[in-house]
Nucleic acid binder design. Structure first.
Lengths: 151, 151
DNA sequence: GTTTAACTCTACCTAATCAGTAGACAACTG
DNA sequence: CAGTTGTCTACTGATTAGGTAGAGTTAAAC
């Protein structure tokens, strides 16, 4: 599962991408539009600024904007950034490789073999998509009708 | 990430698959061969017995064996069982769907759209592979030579 | 029919992580 | 220089992960 923070991060970036080249977007605007706790969002955005994905402007009429064109920010990068890795097990990460604890030697671990293949498939998809891509939304599943929007 | 427990579960099942139709495999044999804490493994196997994936035999010469031929146990099923879902966000699960907290209405959530597509790709792969499939292992990454096996 | 090596079950524990908040401070603009 | 904005360090409460303890139950073998 992606953590709540990763999900907020992605939605925040999508919001900034939607307002690309329209000037800085205020924190509150993002928080309200995306339904993200304001205070938590400051933490998230500060991190994105440190990472160089976002630029902030202080003072009156300040706010945030993407540091790069949306087309240059891939979903794979965002997830790697917030989560460290795309892989489902530490030993199958190509960017943040670690040995699993209590595992077999990697050279004979079939779980690792499987997860490497899966990781590569996931990466291929997530690195193909950028913040500039329109994404088709899907209707909620029928057996689980959307309740009133959680407030 | 898959939890440690899910990883143990998969490796334990792979071990039983390797000994399919060779009689019951003792708990200790699995624990030692797969480097899984013995006591924790009892919890895991008891769960698999309850779920009907594994059969246990008590008493002398007891042990565990798969309840189904390996070819009938898909990796996707194992993960769904231990993890509830293949999806990376609750709202993108087709089997255990839940609304995300603090999200947009699902019908306009692009993160959900993306994660549904990803989920379906992951599912396609994991449901194609079963415990009967040989899996190619890969050598450890060069920049991170395998240390002595953790004891 | 007793032994004995297995499995089973409930309960518990500790440490880490997650999700989020508090509050003082710094910077920019009009 | 007032007011609005972002920045930073620290903290907290709840949940989950990972695993252990220990008493009890089976059933094959002898």
């Amino acid at each position: 599962m992606l953590s709540q923070k990763t999900r907020y991060t992605i939605r925040a970036l999508q919001h900034l991408a939607d307002h690309w080249q329209q000037g800085a977007v205020r924190l509150d605007a993002v928080a309200e539009a995306q339904n993200i706790p304001r205070k938590f969002l400051t933490v998230i955005l500060a991190e994105l600024v440190r990472e160089g994905l976002v630029i902030s402007h202080r003072g009156r009429d300040g706010g945030y904007e993407l540091a790069l064109p949306p087309v240059d920010i891939r979903y794979g990068d965002i997830i790697r950034l917030t989560r460290g890795s795309l892989a489902l097990v530490p030993c199958a990460s190509r960017n943040a490789h670690e040995h699993c604890t209590n595992c077999l030697p990697e050279v004979e671990c079939r779980l690792r073999g499987l997860m490497l293949t899966l990781r590569d498939e996931m990466a291929a998809m997530l690195d193909r998509m950028t913040l500039a891509d329109p994404i088709e939304v899907e209707p909620p599943f029928a057996d689980d009708p959307a309740p009133a929007l959680a407030d």
